[in-house]
Structure formats: C-alpha cells, structure tokens
Simulated scan of single mutants.
Amino acid sequence: VVTPDTFILYKSPWSISRDPITESKPFSSSMHWYVVSGRQYLIQMKIFSGRPDPHEIYITETDDIKLYGDDSDYWKIVSLPDDLSSEYGWRNSRILKAISPGSGELTATLTYFNGHQDSKEVFKVVQEIMVCEKVQFTVNSEDDSPNIFLPWTPAVYQEMELIVTGGCAKSSSDYKWFTSDMSILSVSAYGIIQAKRPGIATVKVLSTFDSQNFDEVIVEVSIPSSLL
C-alpha cells in the first residue's frame, strides 16, 4: 500500500482566458503566498510518497480531499470550469479569486485509508495568504500623459523621486527597481531616477514579495525647448 508522505499546495497565475500562465513557475506551499487583488490563481493539491526520491500519488475516488477557506472576505474559491476539469483534475484543483486586500488561511485536508479498510487517517496542510493591491506608479502629469518627462542639460544630472503604491509594501525596501537603459536613466533602490543623456527608457518596479506584481512607466529624457 502506497501511503502519503507529503501534502503540498501549488499556486499559479490564472489568466482571464481561463488558462494558466505557462511561463510562470508554480509556487509551492510556503510561509506566505502573496496574491494580487483582482487576479485569479489556479490552486492544485498534490500528494507525494517516498523519500529521498518522492513521486506523486494520484488522487482517486476513494480519497476524500477538501479545500477550506472559501468563507474569506478577501478571496473566493470556485471549482474549475467543466471543460478544464479533466485536464487539471477537478478533485484536486480550484480557482482562487482575490477580491480585496487582507490576509487569511487556506486549509487542505486529505482523508485516506492507511492500509486497513476500517481505518482512516487525515493529512492536513495550512497555507497563509496575503492579498495585496496591484503595484502602481503615481504619475502627476499636467497633460494626463502616462509617461514621465525629465529635462536634461549638459553636466546637470536632473533627478526625480518616483512614487509607487501597492504590493503590501511597508517600506521602500519592499520594492525592486530596474531601468531598461542605464546610459539614459539610472534608478536607485529608493526609486530616485537620474537623467544621464537624452533618450527614452522604461522603469520597472516590482514587489519583493511577488515578482508577478509590478508596474512600468516610460521616462523620456529630453533637452528643454528653451535650450534648443
């Protein structure tokens, strides 16, 4: 009789087209899962047996597997659409719809026979979930443009601090910053951009808790018209 040794929950981003985002690696059970309000995720419950080379045990009709946590104010748990249940496994897969910021727990249980038909055991795993707002730039533009314009003059390194919200951040260290072209624009760990030369570059900021939660803004470094 093959008995369960490990019970793991997996989370993958789920697109509006009802397909998992294949380029995203599933996140297994950990201390916290960070999800984004307004997005959907595929939750899969998997059982493994055997060490040091574990292999997956496929869940059958005799196994009673359940996922609790659908009474949360911050997310909803729904079944897979009928046309996808056979592909991903309707017994061990659910869709989590993140609704609003907050935290709570998902609890998964597996009740199985331990080799004796009259004796059952329960395997349990608890996963903490944090629902965050989407990471977003706050751009104050007079012409409502989504881009940022930064003036440049020779030997003067114009700077600007970018404002960003979301991602369950409590401090500036909860974000990571990137620029598409360091020769045009640099960005510090605190979101301060500095013009290097005229050109266009993209600044990306992401949550350190969730690399799928990010925002981008185009920054145009140009010579002021008064100097032309």
Rank of each mutant, 00 (worst) to 15 (best):
W14H: 00
V35H: 11
S86H: 10
S49A: 15
Y10L: 07
V78M: 01
K134C: 05
P13D: 09
I129Q: 04
R91W: 06
G102W: 12
L80P: 03
G104N: 00
K97D: 01
Y68W: 15
P20K: 12
S29L: 03
K134D: 09
M130G: 12
S37W: 05
G69R: 15
D63Q: 10
E133Y: 13
W75I: 04
D70S: 12
I77A: 06
S12Q: 14
T60C: 08
E61M: 06
D5C: 08
D19Y: 07
S30E: 15
A108D: 09
I77Q: 02
K134I: 07
E23F: 12
K134W: 11
V36A: 15
T62I: 11
K134Q: 14
K25T: 15
N92F: 10
P4V: 04
V125A: 10
I43W: 04
L110S: 03
S12A: 13
D118V: 08
S49R: 13
R94N: 02
F7N: 00
N114C: 08
L9H: 05
E61Q: 11
E133R: 15
D83E: 11
Y10T: 07
T107M: 13
K25S: 15
S17T: 07
V131H: 14
L106P: 00
W14C: 01
L9R: 01
W75A: 11
I8E: 04
I129W: 07
G69M: 03
M45C: 05
G38D: 15
W90T: 04
D53V: 11
I21H: 03
E56Y: 07
F48L: 13
T109L: 09
I59G: 06
G50D: 12
S30G: 15
S49V: 06
S93Q: 01
S15K: 05
Y112A: 02
D53H: 14
S17P: 00
S15H: 05
G89W: 10
Y68P: 03
S17C: 10
W90K: 14
K11A: 07
S30D: 14
Y10P: 04
P101T: 13
K46G: 03
S12V: 08
Q117D: 12
I129D: 02
H32T: 14
P101K: 10
S85F: 12
K11P: 01
W75N: 02
W14P: 00
H32L: 13
S30F: 14
K46I: 02
M31A: 10
E128P: 11
G102T: 13
P26N: 13
I57S: 05
I95A: 08
C132M: 09
K97H: 06
S72F: 06
Y34T: 12
Q40I: 02
V122G: 06
D73T: 08
F113C: 08
Y88A: 03
E87F: 14
S103K: 13
A108P: 00
E23M: 07
D64L: 05
K66V: 15
S119M: 10
G104P: 04
